[in-house]
């Protein structure tokens, strides 16, 4: 079967990381990631089922075909370890629909890789790619105010806090950035 390269995630490299498109074999790692309380507590608020994780990988892959942007698996270059996931997505959630379907950025790491600058390195790599490919577009991210490390990272990446958004009883900070 032929591969439609333009529809798939480009492979990106930084000093210590590789960002690559998802593969079926990533399901186990993704499922483990989404069952770490320190990871899901600020995002979905609950662990994901295996099927929800599979659907998320499928959607992330479909996003590349539909929009020309999407998400990546984050691998550590020297060990090949699955550190986490990062990317841009159009959710058509209520917030997304009310805000012109801007791409939303999100990131998550396994806790054992917190505090080493990996999220920052991966996010800068994604933003450099996005600045080239989605020139001048505005993107946003929603961050739980209690998630202080992601709040700090968003600010360091040049996102500007523009307000708060209440959805399903959870209030997130809204950060925006023009690429």
């Amino acid at each position: 079967m032929t591969v439609c390269r333009e529809a798939l995630a480009p492979r990106l490299e930084s000093e210590r990381l590789i960002l690559r498109g998802f593969e079926p074999a990533d399901l186990d790692s993704s499922y483990a990631l989404r069952n770490q309380e320190v990871v899901y507590q600020y995002i979905s608020g609950k662990p994901s089922t295996r099927q929800e994780c599979w659907y998320r990988l499928l959607r992330a892959t479909g996003m590349w075909a539909f929009k020309g942007y999407g998400s990546w698996a984050i691998e550590q270059k020297d060990s090949g370890a699955y550190l986490g996931e990062i990317g841009l997505f159009e959710t058509k959630s209520n917030f997304s629909l009310a805000n012109g379907n801007l791409p939303e950025m999100g990131w998550m790491l396994f806790p054992e890789y917190f505090g080493k600058g990996f999220a920052s390195e991966a996010a800068q790599t994604v933003l450099a790619w996005a600045t080239d490919h989605l020139k001048d577009r505005e993107i946003y991210c929603l961050v739980d105010p209690v998630n202080t490390s992601s709040v700090r990272l968003a600010k360091r990446l040049g996102f500007v806090e523009t307000g708060r958004y209440l959805n399903d009883g959870i209030e997130d900070l809204v950060f925006r950035k023009v690429l």
């Binding site: 439609c4 998802f22 079926p24 499928l58 959607r59 992330a60 479909g62 075909a65 539909f66």
Partner: peptide, 8 residues
């Protein structure tokens, strides 16, 4: 999901 299924 339907679209990504083809790739994966």
């Amino acid at each position: 999901n339907f679209s990504g299924m083809w790739n994966l």
